[in-house]
Simulated scan of single mutants.
Amino acid sequence: MNALTRSISAYWNSSIGKKLIVAVTGIALVLFLFGHMTGNLLVFAGREAFNDYAQFLHHALHGAGIWIARLGLLGAVVLHVVATIALTRQNKSARKPYEYQATIKATKSSRIMIWTGLTILFFVIYHLMHYTIRVGNEYANPALYTDAAYLAKTGEARHDAWKMVIDGFSVWWVAIFYVIAMTVLCSHLGHGVASIFQTLGWNSKKSRPLIEQFSWAYSAVIWLGFVSIPVAILVFKFGR
Score class of each variant (00 low, 15 high):
E48W: 04
L128E: 15
Y98D: 15
N137T: 11
M164Y: 08
A86R: 00
W173P: 00
A102M: 14
A232G: 10
G46W: 15
L61G: 15
G155M: 04
Q55Y: 14
H58G: 14
A28M: 15
I229D: 04
K237H: 05
G35E: 00
H127P: 06
N141P: 07
I21H: 09
A49E: 07
F197A: 10
I112C: 04
L61Q: 15
V193R: 08
G17P: 02
W202R: 10
V77W: 02
V193E: 11
L33G: 04
W216N: 07
L71V: 13
V22G: 06
I180Q: 03
Y11M: 12
V165Q: 04
S215P: 04
G39T: 05
F214I: 02
I120H: 05
A83W: 07
V193I: 15
I85C: 09
M113Y: 02
V135G: 02
N137R: 00
K96Q: 14
S15P: 01
L73H: 08
G35L: 05
D147R: 01
I125A: 10
T84H: 12
I68A: 09
V135R: 00
V231H: 07
I196P: 01
L57V: 11
K153A: 13
N13M: 10
C186H: 10
R89Q: 09
L71S: 13
R95T: 15
I176L: 12
I85A: 02
H59Q: 12
S93T: 12
A10Q: 08
A161F: 06
A102H: 14
R134E: 11
A148I: 12
N203G: 10
F56I: 13
I16P: 00
T103E: 13
S215C: 09
G17A: 09
K163Q: 10
F34G: 12
Q198K: 15
P142K: 11
L74C: 00
V124G: 14
W115R: 07
R95N: 11
G190W: 03
E156N: 08
E156R: 12
W12K: 14
A157C: 06
A60D: 04
L74F: 10
L29R: 02
L20A: 01
R89P: 01
V81H: 01
A60K: 07
Q101V: 12
R70K: 13
L57Y: 01
D52H: 00
Q55P: 10
S14T: 14
N141F: 03
A45G: 14
G192K: 00
T25N: 00
M129P: 06
L185S: 00
K19I: 01
E99W: 09
T132Q: 09
I104V: 15
R208A: 03
K96G: 14
